[in-house]
Amino acid sequence: MDELVQWLHVRLADDEAHARKDLWAADKATPGRWRARYGTNVAHSWVETESTPVLRLDATEHEADALLVARFQPEAVRKRAEEKLREVDAKRQLLAAYTQVAASDINEWEYANGYANALGMAVRLAALPYARRPGYQASWRPEAGPTT
């Protein structure tokens, strides 16, 4: 499990870095509600906020790009980044608590009635969203509980 804890710390550092970049971008972005302008009746697509151009795309095949960019409202990006930073902090607290008792952890359902085992299960579950990233090991997947 030491390897899982170290691996998960790297994933959390990546998440934190991305969230901090998003916060920086939200602070520097043109304020206001963004919207996309595109269609077959215009020569180009663009993103604007209250008639202030933010981004212009000259080729009509970039309609989807304009729409996607406009969906990333600065205030919504800020909220998601702040939530991600809180999530990273919570997972780091979980890892710190688990590290103190990791030697007693057993990844078997029938023994999952102790503090170390419960924290170990929580760490394994916290790693599941990253299971498709390089380095994730199948042995880290939590044991399935008994079926009813």
Rank of each mutant, 00 (worst) to 15 (best):
V47C: 03
A26D: 01
Y38W: 14
R78F: 09
A96P: 01
T40E: 10
L85N: 05
K28Y: 11
K21E: 15
A112E: 07
T49E: 06
K28M: 12
L8A: 11
L125A: 15
L12K: 01
L128Y: 15
A36C: 04
A19E: 00
Q100I: 13
A81Y: 00
A126R: 00
A64P: 06
S104W: 10
T40S: 12
K91D: 13
V69W: 05
D65M: 08
E3K: 04
V42E: 06
W34Q: 02
E143M: 14
V69G: 00
E75V: 12
Y98P: 01
R56C: 13
T148R: 14
H62C: 08
D65R: 05
L68P: 02
W46F: 11
V101Y: 00
M1V: 13
V47I: 07
N41D: 08
R35H: 15
E143G: 06
A118G: 08
R133V: 02
W140G: 14
D14E: 15
A70G: 03
R92C: 10
P31H: 03
T99Y: 05
H18D: 10
M1A: 09
A64H: 13
E110D: 12
L68S: 10
A36L: 03
Y111E: 03
R78L: 08
A126N: 02
P129I: 04
T52F: 09
A13T: 08
W7E: 04
A66K: 00
T52D: 11
E143F: 15
E143I: 11
Q100V: 15
E87D: 11
T40V: 11
E83M: 10
E61P: 00
L95H: 01
P142L: 03
A131E: 13
Q137G: 12
A131G: 07
R132M: 10
R80V: 09
D22F: 05
L57Y: 05
R80I: 06
A17N: 05
R20D: 08
G39N: 08
R86Y: 06
A144N: 11
W46D: 13
A122G: 05
Q73E: 09
Y130I: 08
D58L: 14
P142G: 04
D2Y: 00
D65I: 04
L95Q: 00
E63I: 02
P74C: 04
R33H: 12
E83G: 12
H9S: 14
Y136T: 08
D14V: 14
H9N: 14
A43C: 08
A26K: 01
L68K: 11
K84N: 13
Y136M: 12
R86V: 12
A25I: 12
R71S: 14
P142E: 03
P146E: 10
A25T: 06
E83I: 04
G120W: 02
T60G: 09
L4G: 07
A102M: 07
I106H: 15
Q137S: 12
Y111M: 03
Y38I: 03
D22Q: 06
V47A: 04
A144S: 10
T99W: 05
T148P: 14
T52Y: 06
L67R: 05
T52R: 11
H18M: 14
A116Y: 00
L125Q: 13
N107Q: 13
T148K: 12
A64V: 06
T147P: 05
T147S: 11
Y115S: 14
E3T: 11
R141C: 13
A112Q: 07
A144C: 08
D27C: 06
V101W: 00
M1F: 14
G32D: 10
Q6W: 06
G114K: 06
T99C: 13
